[in-house]
Amino acid sequence: MAVPAVKIDHLTKIYSADLGKKPMCAVDDLNLEVEQGEVFAFLGPNGAGKTTTIKTMMRLLFPTRGFVEIFGIPNLSVKAMRSVGFLPEQPQIYGYLTGREFLDFTARLFRLDRSTRKKRIDDCLEQVGLIKRADGLIRGYSRGMMQRLGLAQALINDPELLVLDEPMSNLDPVGRKEFRDLILELKDKGKTLFFSSHILSDAEMIADRVGIVNQGRLVNTGKLRDLIEAQIRSIEITFIMTPDKTAKLGFEQANIVQQDEHMLVRLENDADVQRTIGDIMRLDGRIVSVVPQKRTLEDIFMTELGG
C-alpha cells in the first residue's frame, strides 16, 4: 500500500498563555490520513482548528504533541516540503514586486534552474489567469488577483501535494468556478489536494473525502458519497391515483400530500417502499418518481457541530 500523502498523528497544539490569557488548545489529538491522489476537504466553523492544523503541517507552527508526515517524511525536514505547494488563507505578498518577480523569487527557493523557472512561471500565470497583469506591481492587485497569484506560487514547483487554506474565500463566482476546474484538472494529473473551506457547496462539488473538525477535534471523516448515502433520510414516492384508491394503500391521511392529481408519500425503509410501489401498480396507479431524500453535506455538518 502506498504511503499516505499526509499523515497527521495525535496532533495537539496548545498556544501558550499570553499576558492575562489562558493557554488555548487549538488542535486536540487529531489523527488523519489523506491518500495519494485524493481531494480532501477539511471542514469546520471559524476557530475549529483548521488553519492551526494546516500551519502545523506547513512547519509554520510547532506541535505541542504528535507529528505530521508528508509522503512518509517528517514535515519538519526540508525534503518533505519539496513536493508541497501551499496557499495560506488570504495570502499577503510583497507589494514592491511584480507578480512575475514574486514567482521568480519562489521558484528560486525551490532551486529551479533558469529555463524551468521561466517555463513554470509562464505556465502558472496562464493557469491562474494572471498572465496579462504579471508585470504590474502586486500592491496594485485586487484581493482576488492576490489569491490567484498565491495559487500560482503554490503551483510553481509542480507539487505532488497542494495544501490550500480557504482557497475560495476571496474569489468571485467566476473565479470559484475556474478554481474548481483547476482542482479537477490537477486531480486528473494524480495530484493530492488538501483544502480547508467553510463553503460546503464547493467542497461537495470537488472533494472525494471530507473531514469535519470542531473545537480542535476531528468529529467525522469519510468519503463524501458514503457520508451522504449513509444518511438517506427518507424516500419520496410521487404517483397519480384517485383519492378513493389511494385510501386503500393504508396510509393515514396526514402522511399523504395531495397536489392536483399527484399524491406524495414519504417512507422511511426499503420494505415499505417495495410494498407501496407494488400496491400502486396493482391499483392501476402511475408512478411519477421515486426520490431518495439524502442529507446534504450541510445537514451532516450541522449535525456534527450539534446545530
Binding site: 526540508v78 495560506p88 519562489t106 527557493l109
Partner: peptide, 14 residues
C-alpha cells in the same frame, strides 16, 4: 506582522 513569512517559511528552506 503582514504574514508574508508564511510564503517563505513553508518552502523547502531552513
Amino acid at each position: 506582522e503582514q504574514r508574508t513569512i508564511y510564503l517563505i517559511a513553508s518552502k523547502p528552506i531552513r
